[in-house]
Amino acid sequence: MPLIETESTISPYWLPNGHFQSIYPALFRKVNGVIYHRERIVTPDEDFLDLDWSYGENAKSGKLAILSHGLEGNSTRQYILGMVKLLNRNGFDCLAWNFRGCGGEMNKTARFYHSGASEDLDLVIQNALTRHYEQIHLLGFSLGGNLTLKYLGESGADLDSRIKSALVFSVPMDLRACSLSIIQPENKVYMHRFLNTLKPKVNAKAAFFPDRINVSDQKHVRTLYDFDHIFTAPLHGFDGADHYYEACSSKFFIRDIAIPTMVINAKNDPIVPYSSLPLAELKAHAQVCLVATPDGGHCGFRPRRLKNGVYWSEERALEFLSR
Rank of each mutant, 00 (worst) to 15 (best):
W14N: 10
H37D: 13
P25A: 09
G70C: 07
A65K: 04
G62E: 13
I66A: 12
E46T: 12
A59E: 13
A59D: 06
K63R: 15
S22M: 02
V42N: 07
V31L: 01
L71M: 15
L67S: 11
V31R: 04
T43K: 09
E46A: 15
I10A: 03
V34C: 03
E39R: 15
F20M: 13
D47L: 06
K63M: 13
L71N: 12
T43D: 06
S22T: 15
P25R: 02
W53D: 02
E57V: 13
P25S: 07
I23L: 15
S22A: 04
D52R: 04
Y55Q: 07
L15M: 10
K30L: 02
G18F: 03
N58V: 12
I23H: 07
A65M: 14
S22Y: 05
S22F: 02
V31G: 01
P44T: 05
Y55E: 04
K63V: 11
I41H: 09
Y36S: 01
P25T: 07
L67V: 15
S54Y: 03
E57F: 08
R38V: 04
R40A: 02
K30T: 08
R40Q: 14
S11V: 02
E72P: 09
E72N: 09
L71K: 03
G62P: 08
A65R: 07
S61E: 07
T43S: 13
G56W: 09
D52T: 02
V34M: 01
H69A: 01
Y13T: 11
R40L: 07
P16C: 05
H37I: 03
Q21I: 10
G18S: 04
L15K: 03
D45R: 09
S54K: 08
S11Q: 04
G56C: 08
R29N: 06
A59T: 05
L51D: 00
F20Q: 14
S11L: 06
H69E: 06
K60M: 02
G70H: 06
I66Y: 12
E72C: 14
I41Q: 11
A59Y: 01
T43C: 05
V34D: 00
L49S: 11
E46W: 11
S61T: 10
L27C: 05
V31K: 00
H69N: 01
S54L: 03
H69Y: 07
A26Y: 14
V31M: 02
R40F: 03
S68P: 13
W53I: 02
E72S: 12
W14D: 10
E39W: 04
W53G: 05
G70Q: 08
N58Y: 03
Y24W: 15
S61G: 09
W14S: 09
E57K: 12
H69C: 08
P16I: 10
N58K: 13
V31E: 00
L67Q: 11
D52M: 10
T43F: 04
S68F: 14
P16E: 08
G33V: 00
V31S: 00
L51F: 02
I10R: 05
G70N: 09
Y36N: 00
Q21T: 10
G56V: 08
K60D: 15
L71V: 10
V34P: 01
R38G: 02
E39L: 09
F48S: 15
N58G: 01
I66D: 12
L49K: 10
I23Q: 07
W14L: 13
Y55H: 12
P44N: 06
I35F: 00
K63L: 14
P25D: 11
E46S: 13
V34K: 04
V34L: 03
P12D: 05
G70A: 11
S11M: 05
K63D: 13
L27A: 13
